[in-house]
Design a protein around this nucleic acid. Structure first.
Length: 829
RNA sequence: GCGGGGGUGGCGGAAUGGAAGACGCGCUGGACUUAGGAUCCAGUGCCGCAAGGUGUAGGGGUUCAAGUCCCCUCCUCCGCACCA
């Protein structure tokens, strides 16, 4: 009987579905394990990246069940977002219909992979029973002052009269009509995530030890803690102050100009003092800068654009008048939107000053060198000796910074300040397919939050999308016009929707209490299940999603709803799936459809290949031949049982090591038990699923090499096969379940615990000792295990093969590692 | 530009500072066969008939011993806030 993967997989999937094998409940007192994967966007079809992500998670979930844990392993869909709108316009359907169809199709695809999700907990963020709680959380944040409105620029296409997502701007032009995109300022909603910056930063070191260093470093940089000083420059002509922040207060005597972002508030005031002609120039300058991307503007070496306002500010330390410029490389949403310009010690300032003939004044010299502002070719940014700075001359940079800030604080010039690079999170989107922000604008009361008992504010579905891609909500007058919930007067609904990252910032909490209509989640459930024990997903989420989710968790803890400080205990970031040296993509035409491969080889083969072909964090090179190799291996496993079925079903007990006679039997028994040990360590500690598979392949090779002749041999064979099926089950659940049943076992393999490793089976009598001479391997000797250093050295040096090599030479010393190696160091060989 | 990751056979990849290349793919030879794109056996870093030498991007260092630790150089890939 050949390995008929199609029939086998179908049989077991039906059985699991029918018996609800993987439904799970909160069971206080039982050890829990929460295994979570980043839920997919329902784009229409599963791709190999999903298959890789979820094959890892399913393997781990199944493995932990077999280790005795109560495992929460849920799945859902991140179902709001731009692609649904685009697809709907293109194919003349509705985003809701398109999305729900995709969800159903992808759910079937996931089931065909044999993943052991608790489908009872499925969420789809586009449904009112989910996004109602988005709105509820938003209102809690609003109550605490964490959600607020502010003007912010958006990408705008004049021709389509619509906001463009960054993705919809290509080379500065609208993706649909190719019109030049511009920036436009709109009143928008923000979340005050910066309030949480200190804790988000410090917990990276304190509480994210189960995360990859790489991701922790990325978050550290993203949040960007810096220590420095805030100081302001008086502008007498405008009767105003310009606030700046610097990490290099030690360069304050070298300030030769002030630069403002073109979007700075003060620009309006400046224009009042400027001739109409020059105002026109200024406006053009501001527009030119706004059209550039922030990366373009701030890149060192990028073209510096500047505009001299003709107005001066006062250096608070020297009392000197210095010019105020507008500069493209200053960003309004970074720091205070203004800088003190120190060309001698900042490369971008230097480039700016050379271009616009602003003086360069060095205030730090390199050791043993004196800089000349006239002739310098580049800025000096390293530490050095302070000069041109009054009483601070001669100090070293490291000492000068704190000393000068202290002096600055005493004289009232500056204030020491810790700054974060993290900016508040802009959550409003001028898009249709998202969560409506639960706010109305009342003619009488102004901004009014929707009362909680009126949630959800449902997104109207009977609506025609606009061909240009903009949001149709503002023109849905039946929906927009409403009564103020406070005073009953006419009010207009907020027509912006929430960023979809809002949905994904707390979905892991909803999984704990599925379907609850009365609460967002139940503390009984979250206290039991949280935190997530293992989170698996792509590295591309290292900063945004993984910081937002941390932020939400801390916020919900602060309002008394959660007990954990961090949502994700351990994080695994998997690499991409590559083919022919490039990421799989439709445009390159190198996409491999999972369904097709499953039809051809079966889900077990695909899962095995994808877990075996590369370590989880690495990119994985798709190889058809590799898939065939995995399939071949499963055929080998199948035959190992099928061809030996009579012998394997003849016995049910195992043989203890003490009853084994031959070294072949002992070696085989040892192989069986080291496999248990190695596979467990590779999965649980090392998270190296590829080597776990390799260990099982070795066991299968040993099974084929072992030729049973007596009853003890057959009992060993049965033990080997049972261990193999138990270890392989999390990777390939269908074939192993089938073979387990064929062996006559009444139990289900998924509820069977992984066999314990028998320590007695691991004991060895003899070991190979590597003999080195001056660090080079010269001999390999087989000696009894467990020899003491002295005895080991004696046995080695007296061995004829070694003795002949060292004869007549003077031994300087001998290094020996018991059971492993002896290195004989010979002086002047 | 800033930030991060990574360079080991023909390929994917193994190696608590202690035998470099586990496991798999590919390749070579053989067996069984009408057949082989099934299966099994043997081999497979490079140079060499061999003894042996040599080898983890390149260069330097620490060590009895370095793919692994330290310094410099080169090459690559990824992220950068309205795609999710």
């Amino acid at each position: 009987m050949a390995y008929d993967f199609g029939a086998i997989e179908n049989k077991w999937q039906l059985k699991w579905e029918k018996e609800r094998t993987f439904y799970v409940e909160t069971r206080i007192g039982k050890p829990k394990f929460y295994c979570l994967e980043m839920f997919p966007y329902p784009s229409g079809a599963l791709h190999m990246g999903h298959v890789r992500n979820y094959s890892m998670g399913d393997m781990l979930a199944r493995f932990m069940r077999k280790k005795g844990f109560n495992v929460l392993y849920p799945m859902g869909f991140d179902a709001f977002g731009l692609p649904a709108e685009n697809a709907a316009i293109k194919s003349n359907t509705h985003p809701n219909k398109w999305t729900l169809n995709n969800i159903e199709h992808m759910t079937l695809q996931l089931k065909r992979m044999g993943y052991s999700y608790d489908w009872n907990r499925r969420v789809a963020t586009c449904q009112p029973d989910y996004y109602k709680w988005n709105q509820w959380i938003f209102l809690q944040m609003y109550k605490k002052g964490l959600a607020y409105r502010k003007m912010a620029p958006v990408n705008w296409c004049e021709k389509c009269s619509t906001v463009l997502a960054n993705e919809q701007v290509q080379d500065g032009r609208c993706w649909r009509c190719d019109n030049q995109a511009t920036k436009k300022k709109l009143e928008q909603w923000f979340l005050r995530i910066t309030d949480y910056a200190p804790e988000l930063y410090s917990d990276i070191d304190d509480k994210l030890n189960g995360w990859p260093d790489r991701v922790r470093t990325m978050q550290r940089n993203w949040i960007g803690r810096s220590t420095g000083a805030r100081l302001s420059f008086n502008v007498p002509e405008l009767d105003a102050k310009i606030e700046t922040y610097t990490t290099r207060f030690d360069t304050i005597f070298g300030v030769t100009y002030i630069a403002l972002a073109p979007e700075h508030d003060l620009v309006q005031e400046i224009m009042k003092k400027t001739s109409p002609e020059k105002c026109c120039e200024l406006t053009q300058f501001v527009e030119k800068c706004s059209a550039q991307s922030s990366i373009e503007r701030s890149a060192a070496g990028g073209e510096k654009l500047g505009f001299d306002t003709g107005i001066s500010g006062v250096n608070p330390v020297t009392g000197e008048l210095i010019p105020i410029w507008l500069a493209n490389y200053i960003l309004m949403d970074y720091g205070t939107g203004a800088i003190m310009g120190v060309p001698a010690h900042d490369q971008r300032d230097f480039e700016f000053c050379r271009k616009f003939n602003i003086p360069v004044v060095p205030v730090i010299n390199p050791e043993g060198e004196v800089l000349d502002g006239e002739t310098m070719k580049e800025s000096f940014v390293d530490d050095g000796i302070v000069c041109n700075s009054g009483k601070f001359n001669g100090m070293r940079t490291g000492d000068a910074i704190p000393a000068m800030i202290k002096w600055g604080e005493e004289t009232g010039v500056c204030a020491a300040e810790v700054n974060f690079r993290l900016r508040d999170w802009l959550v409003s989107r001028q898009r249709y397919w998202g969560t409506p922000i639960p706010i109305v604008y009342c003619d009488k009361c102004g901004i009014v939050p929707i009362p909680e008992d009126m949630l959800p504010v449902e997104l109207p579905l009977d609506i025609q999308l606009l061909a240009g891609g903009g949001t149709p909500l503002p023109s849905a007058s039946d929906w927009v016009n409403t009564a103020c919930p406070v005073c009953g007067a006419h009010a207009r609904r907020e027509t912006d929707t929430l960023d979809t990252f809002f949905c994904s910032s707390w979905y892991f909490l909803r999984y704990c209490s599925p379907g609850r209509r009365d609460v967002v989640f139940d503390a009984l459930d979250t206290d039991y299940w949280m935190a997530v024990d293992q989170y698996i997903g792509g590295i591309e989420h290292a900063c945004m999603h993984l910081i937002y989710a941390r932020y939400f968790t801390k916020f919900l803890r602060n309002i008394g709803m959660l007990r954990v400080d961090e949502p994700f205990e351990n994080l695994l970031t998997q690499g991409m799936v590559i083919k022919d040296g490039a990421k799989m993509s439709k445009s390159l035409g190198n996409v491999v459809d999972p369904t097709e491969i499953v039809n051809r080889y079966g889900a077990d083969t695909v899962r095995l290949f994808i877990l075996f072909a590369a370590p989880p964090q690495n990119d994985l090179d798709w190889s058809e031949q590799g898939v065939e190799g995995a399939h071949r291996f499963l055929n080998r496993v199948w035959r190992a049982v099928e061809e030996n079925l009579d012998g394997l079903t003849g016995y049910s007990d195992t043989v203890p090591v003490s009853s084994l006679a031959s070294s072949a039997q002992k070696d085989f028994k040892r192989k069986i038990h080291t496999t248990i040990l190695d596979v467990t360590r590779d999965i649980v500690e090392e998270k190296q699923f590829n080597t776990a598979v390799a260990r099982m392949m070795e066991l299968v090779n040993a099974i084929y090499a072992f030729k049973p002749s007596d009853s003890n041999d057959w009992k060993l064979m049965r033990e080997a096969v049972c261990v193999l099926l138990n270890c392989l089950f999390p990777f390939c659940p269908h074939i192993t379940s089938e073979l387990w049943q064929m062996l006559g076992n009444a139990s289900q393999l998924d509820s069977e615990l992984i066999p314990e490793c028998d320590g007695a089976a691991l004991v060895v009598d003899e070991v190979t000792i590597v003999v080195q001479i001056n660090g080079k391997v010269r001999e390999k000797l087989t000696l009894p295990a467990g020899l003491e250093k002295r005895e080991l050295e004696k046995r080695v040096t007296e061995h004829p093969d070694v003795a002949s090599r060292i004869e007549g030479k003077e031994i300087a010393k001998i290094i020996s590692v018991p059971n492993k190696l002896v290195n004989i160091v010979i002086s002047d060989e």
